[in-house]
Design a binder for these strands. Structure first.
Lengths: 235, 235
DNA sequence: ATCATATTTCTTGTATACTAGTATGTCAAT
DNA sequence: ATTGACATACTAGTATACAAGAAATATGAT
């Protein structure tokens, strides 16, 4: 390994706009490539090669890779190379723990400060998810799932809450790509989302907390079988 | 302003060791300078000036400042300058919310998985804090407070949990420097820490959660008066 | 004196060159 | 066949040079 062209992104060098910092654009680009498994866990990323592909110097590429290492998407080994991190069950569990802690607090907060707008919006998303499930459209379903959790995360006045949740969720999203979504799973998620909104509406924090906790524990049940199916992507 | 020497750190350029990356050392150095209020909120930080003081090039300094902007300690304004972020009550509230969410989950977890070692260590720290309070030694008391929360944060097998808590706590630590510690406050913190350990020992998660929640809400009570005393450091 | 407009001097962003450490392939000695 | 030395081709870390933009300052007209 580490011989053939290390990176072959499907987008060519011209994907950069001129009005935003190059480093940030490259960060987003590579992050998306990692989440979508275009760059595989364990794969090497060469600063020089990336720089050539984007038609820029190593400097912004390097800054982007440092950022990616901050969020645990790549690992920089000095004088050796930069590699896409493999999945680790421990990291997934960490992310799940933190997500549960914060999201549980958020829905508890929401139950105490009932907000009709958010409840209506949540119910709307659930309705759309029902349609996506009927159409058996996993991608649409996932996007709506993200939207649902983002709605809750953004419902506090604390922007950072949504940021931290998203950062942790990203690690689960990477793995989620490998999990094929079954119809039965759609139904469970739908029921759980419905229960969460209902609990918030009831105004009882503990009920909302419990509903969210159950939901996130169940999400993990889906993920935990993946290492056996794809051991090559795990440490 | 922004005329006289922008930065005058008390340590001279030779404080860098050769075996670790320069960028990381500078990051730690500047972070500590910000937490200790050696660099004041709103103050400008010049990449060039810092580089000269450390006797290095702009590159590692720049990377350090980018990292500091990630954790919200500085703000990089393109083509204008890099500034130490001012305090904002909203950011403190964000940090408190996230801390409470995670630390509550941690002690709940601990109550369910009772660990004698951690309880003993916690009680030991509390005993030392009692001595520090008797000696009226705020610095020692604070360090032990950090140690207490770190003990709990590190008690899960998830390293990231401690990392996230520390990252959020840092914003409260910055402000904490401005709060003069009174004897009466020592006593409250001691009682609260004792209650947390006792609740964990009892094995009832909800009790532990409540104890931690009370503690962190009270910490905020101490911080919330500071903007009035030091409006110049707030946005 | 006041206002509009160059100009100069800051700043960060990016490109390039160089340093030093690491893996690897070659080849000789065992 | 195995081992070890050494040359080579990588890597990331750092230094330096330049570009682009913003702000302060100087300049000149009114």
């Amino acid at each position: 390994m580490a011989k053939q062209p290390l990176i072959t992104l499907s987008t060519n060098a011209k994907g950069l706009s001129f009005d935003r910092p190059t480093a940030i654009q490259i960060f987003s680009f590579v992050r998306d490539a990692i989440i979508s498994m275009e760059l595989l866990p364990g794969q090497m990323i060469s600063e020089t090669s990336l720089a050539n592909q984007f038609g820029v110097s190593r400097t912004p590429v390097r800054e982007a890779l440092i950022q990616l290492s901050n969020i645990g998407f790549v690992e920089v080994l000095p004088q050796r190379g930069t590699y896409v991190t493999k999945f680790s069950m421990n990291k997934i569990l960490e992310a799940r723990f933190i997500r549960e802690a914060i999201e549980v607090s958020v829905v508890s907060y929401l139950a105490e400060h009932v907000n009709d707008e958010i409840i209506l919006e949540g119910e709307k998303i659930i309705a759309e998810q029902k349609l996506a499930a009927d159409d058996n459209d996993p991608l649409a379903f996932q996007k709506l799932d993200d939207k649902f959790h983002q709605l809750l995360a953004n419902s506090t006045e604390y922007a950072r809450v949504a940021q931290v949740i998203e950062a942790e969720k990203a690690h689960m999203d990477r793995v989620r790509c490998l999990s094929l979504q079954e119809e039965e799973q759609f139904k469970r998620v739908l029921a759980q989302h419905t229960a969460i909104i209902k609990a918030i509406k009831s105004g009882v924090p503990d009920k909302a907390a419990k509903a969210m906790s159950i939901h996130l524990k169940d999400v993990y049940n889906v993920l935990k079988v993946i290492p056996q199916e794809h051991p090559e992507y795990f440490v």
